[in-house]
Design a protein around this nucleic acid. Sequence first.
DNA 1: CCTACCGATCGGTAGG
DNA 2: CCTACCGATCGGTAGG
Lengths: 205, 205
Amino acid sequence: MLTNVSLLTFVRMETKVKNGRKQQIEQTATMLFQKKGYAATSMRDLAAELGIEAASIYSHVKSKEEILQRICFRMAEEFFDSLKSNLANCDNAEDRLKMAIISHVKVVTKDPASSAVFFSEWRHMGAEALNDFLQMREDYEKEFKSILSGGIENGIFREVDINLSMMSILSSINFIPAWYKVNGKYSAEEIAERISRQFIDGIKN
Amino acid sequence: MLTNVSLLTFVRMETKVKNGRKQQIEQTATMLFQKKGYAATSMRDLAAELGIEAASIYSHVKSKEEILQRICFRMAEEFFDSLKSNLANCDNAEDRLKMAIISHVKVVTKDPASSAVFFSEWRHMGAEALNDFLQMREDYEKEFKSILSGGIENGIFREVDINLSMMSILSSINFIPAWYKVNGKYSAEEIAERISRQFIDGIKN
DNA sequence: CCTACCGATCGGTAGG
DNA sequence: CCTACCGATCGGTAGG
């Protein structure tokens, strides 16, 4: 009986590990990329952390760069999806900016490790992926800029420099993974609330 | 005569190059560290950029890490010196915060490449240097936090979270090297002015 | 998933 | 500042 239960458990875990191995590789790599940086993390480091040989990683992943690309593009998607759904019912510029900031903070605090890799390691992607990536980033920034320019036109915001304010807002939020602790002093909602208030008060008319 | 002049010029240049070679190595390394990251920049990359052999670098510098340390600690010093002199004649909290931001922006825009390395590559220093570095960073942040808490006590600033506001301010400024172009649209003074206004308006009572 | 291995490249040294 | 070289390590492949 005991043997059966153990065996079942074992099989279930094995299956789970097998199905989730690629994700597990990605997750472990994310942690190492954040801690040591992409270039300074070797496939042998990653293998050791996973308890397997370096060569074995290549049964699940075709290259080191593929791991990085998956992290970066998954996060890009999450930022876009979140922004879209959070802006769905907003038309007032102040609400829109607030929701855009909250959306961004939510994504960042939900997965700080992946966010940190996303923000700091993207330049190590190859030229092709890099191009797509930078295009997406530009599109995302454009959303923020259009919110700002809309608010200025309506007189809700004063005449700030759009590029400067957008950069200022996003870089503040993007740095959150560097200090945010999941079980720390601040909840994601509290951070989002305080940061958005500070920025909106800073540019309101 | 011509030979003499040429010889003198040659000697002078040689001397200058010799005296300045270490600085030239540092400067070129800074550029590469910013573009590719410390770990992904090899001593052979650096040598090629300098037009010499990799082994020759070691006549001027004892290791790759020494270059990184020199960049990081030189910048740390500049941030402290600038802050100290800029705060010398300020006592009002609002002025102090404004001057602290202006000071920081000045240092960052004066040498964006070194600043970028300072902000992004410090973690590749060895444990000993890293310890000193993090201590200095903490001290520097403490200055900003004391300005904020002073302003809150006097009722000049509203009751923001000090850690959050400090992080928010510094990360905005620290990201400037990522987009700032020396001959670009914005002067350092203009950036400093706009950023400090936005932040101060965001936390003023 | 492992063993065995590849060519390339790494930071750095010896000796001139 | 160069030539010649070191041991270590890199990302990745072949074959099982």
